[in-house]
Simulated assay, not measured.
Amino acid sequence: MLTQVDRQILKSWRQYAVEPRLAKITGRVMRNTGPRIAIIGNCQSFGVAYAMKVLDPSATVDHFSMIARARSTMGLFAKTLETYDYVFSHDFLDGHVRGGGSEELCKRLPKTMIFPAITFAAFHPDLVYIHDLSRMHGFVCGPIGPYHSAIALFAYRKGLSVEMANALFNENVFDALGYFDMWNDASRELVDGTRDRYGLDLSAELMNWSRRGVFMYSTVHPMSFVLFDLSKKLFETVGLKPRTVNFNYYAIHDLARSEIFPIYPSIAKRYGAQGGYMFKLQNHHISTTVGDFLTLPQYIASCYKIYSGHDPSQLSNPRVDAWVADEATSGLLMRLARENFVAGLTPTL
């Protein structure tokens, strides 16, 4: 079965080698007369590719999704990308293309510009992943895909009931865990990381994003205007002139089709935003169904059911492991769960 990358390679050669000749024979005027741009990467890369097309409608902008394992070899992939004027790529590991990852691509194609994936944890400090060590780049999936609540996982591992786990989702618990103090660390990680690793200064962009309120759907899924600003930065870095355009008018919120982790109310309040406990399930078929959501009790119950089907050794996360191992932290959380439950502090919405 061909992956998106395999199909895009075939499409690219048709666009590059076949369509111009057909246009010459038929007299058809080519619509895309600008630069050829390739975008390679993870789930954020489509948003970057789309934004670049908005920035230059005359450009041919092709998106290569590095999520599944492609049949194509790195040799064919690099040869295909040679036909592009500009190549932008996220870091990607061996296995997505046979014969190497982004490091090998850069060796074969030095014009490749590696660009950052935007991550920011301050809005969703409770979101963690559970790695599945049996699969390459694999994760244990919960009710909303790979996104897990550290608090819910802790509660399950300590044997708390769903109702007692529900009582942990309160301001006193978030305060005890340091969830209100993550903005500065998240900002430094984003700004310093993109500057030191990729040579891009996003400090002004981060300030503008924060002025707009919440700008992430999860720790790894930014909103479309974030990816638009990143695309402008990439254009300017390679000497392309971005078009002046109102992106809000043309924006496609592609990552909103995926899972959305809520911003808990007391955390949202700190940032002047509205929060809640509504967990959105992924829905990539939005043209045929509106999708579904889970309340907090439903989410916790679903987590418990899924976790019960796994060996305890498979439910490991460094942060939660540390909480469980530390008697003071574990004891504090257990006490707060009991006190909040007795006080009737079991939020749902």
Rank of each mutant, 00 (worst) to 15 (best):
I37P: 09
V48F: 07
N283Y: 10
E103C: 10
D62V: 00
N42R: 09
N184M: 13
D201S: 09
W323M: 04
T346I: 13
V214L: 13
Y179L: 01
F120N: 07
Q44H: 06
C141R: 14
N42C: 14
A167D: 01
R212E: 10
E104K: 08
T80A: 11
L234P: 12
I118C: 12
V162E: 02
K232I: 09
Y271F: 12
K107H: 10
D326E: 01
C43T: 08
R71Y: 05
E104W: 00
P125N: 02
K158D: 03
Y179K: 04
V220K: 02
M1W: 14
Y307K: 00
L336G: 01
G276P: 06
F120G: 04
E171F: 01
A68F: 02
F123R: 08
A59F: 05
I267G: 02
F293V: 14
A204Q: 14
T219R: 06
R195Q: 00
P146Q: 15
V5Y: 01
H285Y: 04
K232N: 06
F88R: 01
A268S: 11
I118Q: 06
A273I: 11
Q274P: 00
R28V: 15
M278D: 07
Y129L: 11
H310A: 09
L206P: 11
Q15P: 00
S134I: 03
A251I: 07
P222R: 13
D175V: 03
R257Y: 10
I130T: 09
N32S: 14
D311A: 10
P110K: 10
P110N: 10
S89F: 07
T194I: 10
D85G: 10
H96Y: 08
H284Y: 15
T80N: 15
A204K: 13
R71S: 08
L2H: 15
S224Q: 13
T329I: 14
A256Y: 15
V173W: 00
V238I: 14
Q282R: 14
I260R: 02
L81G: 07
P222G: 06
V128W: 00
A301P: 02
F293Y: 14
E189L: 03
A78W: 02
A117L: 15
A38F: 05
V5N: 02
P318R: 01
V29L: 09
R188C: 14
C303A: 03
D132P: 06
R195S: 04
P116G: 08
K79Q: 15
D326H: 00
L200H: 02
F92T: 08
L349V: 13
R195D: 01
S258I: 11
